[in-house]
């Protein structure tokens, strides 16, 4: 991230051109936009945060709740969640799904995206078609469910990620990034006698850190949040991942006949719901700044020169 700052300064100092009125208005609008956006985004986030810390004896409406002072906060919702018998188990299952899912997804997607990005490949058009058709024609739940049952994946963790391990959307996005890499780089390697796998490993991958991280994040989040497939394919109680637990909490009152008991002791259910969202989002949220490290400007250029 430091690089950006220094380079940015350089833009205006090294080339001795003064910013014009147009530049000023541009900068002003950009910052205004970001500032407003920050405000708009902060509202739901903040209200969810304060909601998650709301004590059980809280009196007042939602607006007042947003201005609840931190010293009046209660952590009972978080304590109740961590004390929930199924929470750690579900977390563990989710981590297994995340690791297995992202690994297999990237392993399958990267080569496919790379192959599709080679413009001279005979049959490329047909391959693209082959990839697009299942993306557009979504035959729905049952045809896939039948497949998963027939190959014996049912009630196993990979059932949650294997059937969706290649997302055509992600694959084609990745392809378009690969296509953006100057052809000369690949050709020179090929002339040096490198095989396609070597070209992929030595030329493409190092230049595509940002996009691979991004697509990995997309996959990771989709697997981490995948409630529907987990609900369909996983039966054993011991295999239930976090989204199932979360859904059970979020939908709790919809079904519960025995409203006289609470699964979470003293914590208010609204706070539990809000807290459960944060608890489950933490790993993904924590991963993003790490991925942002690879978002440095002009990555490509640096590599070509180096």
């Amino acid at each position: 991230m430091k690089k950006i700052g220094t380079r940015r300064k350089g833009r205006f100092t090294s080339v001795a051109i003064r910013p014009t009125a147009a530049d000023h208005s541009f900068n002003f609008l950009v910052d205004l936009f970001l500032g407003l956006l920050l405000l708009i985004i902060a509202i739901p986030l903040w209200s969810t945060i304060t909601l998650s810390f709301r004590p059980n004896d809280y009196i007042g409406n939602n607006l007042e709740g947003m201005f609840l002072m931190p010293w009046k906060w209660s952590t009972s919702a978080y304590e109740a969640l961590l004390g929930n018998a199924g929470f750690l188990l579900a977390f563990g299952n989710s981590v297994k799904i995340l690791i297995g899912g992202v690994a297999s997804a990237l392993l399958l997607t990267i080569p496919l995206a790379y192959v599709l990005s080679i413009p001279t490949l005979p049959g490329r058009r047909y391959l693209n078609m082959l990839v697009i058709v299942p993306y557009v024609f979504n035959v729905g739940m049952i045809p896939t469910y039948l497949l998963v049952t027939n190959i014996g994946l049912i009630d196993k963790l990979p059932a949650v990620y294997i059937p969706v391990a290649i997302s055509t959307y992600n694959c084609l996005i990745m392809r378009s990034f690969f296509e953006g890499i100057p052809n000369e780089l690949k050709e020179s390697a090929r002339i040096d006698g490198a095989s396609e796998i070597q070209v992929l490993l030595r030329i493409i991958l190092p230049l595509s850190k940002a996009i691979i991280m991004t697509i990995g994040l997309f996959y990771g989040v989709s697997f981490w949040n995948n409630f529907f497939h987990a609900m369909l394919y996983l039966n054993s109680n011991a295999l239930q991942p976090l989204p199932i637990l979360l859904r059970n909490i979020l939908m709790a009152s919809g079904m519960n006949e025995y409203v006289e008991v609470s699964a979470f002791g003293d914590a208010p259910i609204a706070a539990i719901k809000a807290a459960s969202v944060f608890m489950s989002a933490i790993p993904m949220v924590a991963a993003y700044p790490f991925i942002q490290k690879y978002f440095t400007k002009g990555t490509l250029l640096g590599s070509v020169k180096g």
């Binding site: 049952i142 469910y145 039948l146």
Partner: peptide
Amino acid sequence: TTLPSNESDQDVKIQAAAAA
């Protein structure tokens, strides 16, 4: 196997299993 907490999820899970 604990059925999902909400009725329509239950219906979907059971019917999918039934279809197979």
